[in-house]
Structures are given as structure tokens and as C-alpha cells.
Amino acid sequence: MSCLQTIADYGLRSMGVGERLLPRGDFTLCQQFTLIGSGMLWNIYFGVLALAFGFFFANALALAKASRQPAFRKPAEWFIFIFRGSPLFIQFFLAYEALVLLPRGGIEIFGMTAEVSWLSRAWAGALIVLFLNTAAYSAEIFYGALRSIPKGDLEAADAYGMTGWARFARVQWPTMLRLAWPAYTNEAIFLFHATTLVFFSGFPAFAQKGDALYYASYFVDKTFNPFIPYPIVAFYFIVLTMGLIGLFGLINRRLNRHLPSNERSRVKLRPQIIR
């Protein structure tokens, strides 16, 4: 079987397209690269969606935490503390246990039956956990940035007579984002790394549709050799990370475009915020 054929058969296997049975003999490098690469689609799916949703929720959380009203501040503080203070590993486990407790038949709301069993599937359940998790981490970053906005910027806004929404949307928020961006880049990278935990210990793989690490484990289980599949996963992640750094660097440049070139903060990779 040629390599192109393998790619056609297994390239989208993780989404349930193509051959139903996984390869079961003569494991070629091509098969391993194809299937593990196919699994990367799940890592990207989890990472991109969790980041996209998490970004908005994180903004809200950061504002709540910075609020003077205890009714907003306290819940946000607790939410952030719980999600940042416990291992993702345990969060996955508890979330799964909680989600499978939902009634099978669905929940009755105003006479309508809402189907809920899909929540215990990885594509939904794990995404929710990752979303909440990244929201908590990002909120802490945004909150820190919010507090380090130069006083002068705010005074300038006041001097222009800006108040309320205009002041927030045109001065505070852009500055916060600019200051937070390097740390937020790290958060994005580590969120992608964290997606490997989904099938590893959190959620069961359904119909052998799993992420990169799931297929790597499959090959290790069949070939009994850990020294090929796992480094392939590592390789894919290095490529993914480089892509991310490039993309976030471009955004960073745009966020800082008004500054003289020697003042621009470069994206420094420091592990401020991983799990």
C-alpha cells in the first residue's frame, strides 16, 4: 500500500472519515505519521475553540476580579483560584464524573426534553473543561495587565473627557491586551500542550477517534516500541508551537504598531502560566 493511499485512508480517521479499522500489522512510518497527524486535528480543535471562547470569558472574569463590587469580585476570585490551583488532570476526572451523572434520557425543561448525553463525550465535555481552565489562566494574566496600565494613559483619557465605555474600549482594553500579549502567547502554547491530556486520562476515546497522543499510544501498544510514535507526537507539537509563536507574534506587532520600534515589547517565552 502506497503512502498516498495510506493518507487517503487514514488522514481523517480521527474524525471518523476513511477506513474504520486502524492498521493492524506491518506498521509503517507513513501510517504512524498519518494517523498521529490525523489525531493532531483534535488537539487543534480543542486548542482553537477553547482559546476562542476562553478569550471572551477571560476578559469578563478579569474585569470582575478588578471590580470594586464584592458580588462580582468574590466569585471571579474563587473561580480563578480553583481552576489555577488544581491539576488539569483532576479537573478532567471530576468533570467527567459529574457529566456522566446527567440523566441519560435528557432533562425536561418546560415540557421539552433537552438531550444532554453528548456532554460526556470528549468533544463537548473536555472542551468545556479546557475552556474554563484557559479562561481562568488568561483572566489572571489580563487582570495583572489591567493593574499595570500606566497611570498616565488613564489620566490622558480623563483629560480628553473620555468616560465609561469609550474610556474602557479605547484606552484601557487595548493597553491591557498589549501588556498581556506575551504572557497570553505562553498560555496559548501551553493550552495546546494540555490538550494531550484529554484522551490520555480524562475522557474515553469513542470509536477509536482520538488525538495525537491516543494514536501514538495505539502504535506503542501494537509495536511495543515507544521510541518512534512518541517522538512523532513531539515533532508535530514543535511544528504547531512554531506556527503559534509566528501567529501570535504578528498580532503582537499589530498591537504595538503605534509605539516607536525600540519600545515594543517582544514576545518573550516565559512560563508564567502553565498548568
Partner: peptide, 17 residues
């Protein structure tokens, strides 16, 4: 190295190596 590789993947084969 750490930027690119998820720690869990690293742990899986590094100890045996």
C-alpha cells in the same frame, strides 16, 4: 525544547530512554 513538546509526551518515552 520545552516550548515545543508537551511534558506528558516527554515523560512517556524519556524515562525508559
Amino acid at each position: 525544547m520545552v516550548r515545543g513538546v508537551p511534558d506528558i509526551v516527554f515523560f512517556l518515552f524519556f524515562v525508559i530512554a
